[in-house]
Amino acid sequence: MRVLLVEDDAALAAGIVEGLERAGMSVDHLDAAEPAESALALTAYDLAIVDLGLPGMDGLELIRRVRRRKLPIPILILTARDGLDDRVKGLDIGADDYLVKPFLLPELQARARALIRRGGAATSSTLTIGPLTLDLGLRTASLDGTELELTGREWDVLQHLMLAAPKVLSKKKLMESLGSWDSEISPNAIEIYVSRLRAKLADSGVTIRTVRGIGYRLESAE
């Protein structure tokens, strides 16, 4: 997994590079937006982490240009400003997630992993969390390489949970995504699919946590 970090603060950049490398990613670091633009055009990165407050061209402009070139790379924004306006601007022009400084390293690692996973689903059509892998093209699932027997609905629920992780997926959204004009899905049905999935994932290190009143979160011991 190859990550490009664009951050002008040397101490923070060094920390992030080391932190992500320990999590098994290989990280290139640039301290300005201009070289980052060409680097992103030339190299197929799995993730770009961009600080908004850069000298010269700022992070927002870099993201705008990357998206104008239609590069499909997932982008995580780092920002020191907490106003929603900054966040919305970033997400509107095509960033995928943001983190407000200061943040904890595990948080950054988790967000980076989630973005890489989703990006991977778009390009290689597989989704992986810990030992669990979903093949989006074949609609199959495997645990540590062993095929997992899933019904169509179970597979759909698992896919949405994996795409949302590490965030909580609300039951409401799940029902909206799975339902269609002719077949509505009841909350009870969702609960049944989740409990079957739990049974099939037992002892795999991947668990589904219930968040009462909201929905579910897929967690992995990775």
Partner: peptide, 24 residues
């Protein structure tokens, strides 16, 4: 404030990250 936020938060983030790495 906006400026101070930026100036304060980045070094805090750096410090936090470095300490976490050392802790391991």
């Amino acid at each position: 404030l906006s400026n101070a936020a930026h100036q304060l938060r980045t070094p805090l983030a750096a410090l936090q990250t470095q300490l976490e790495l050392v802790a391991e």
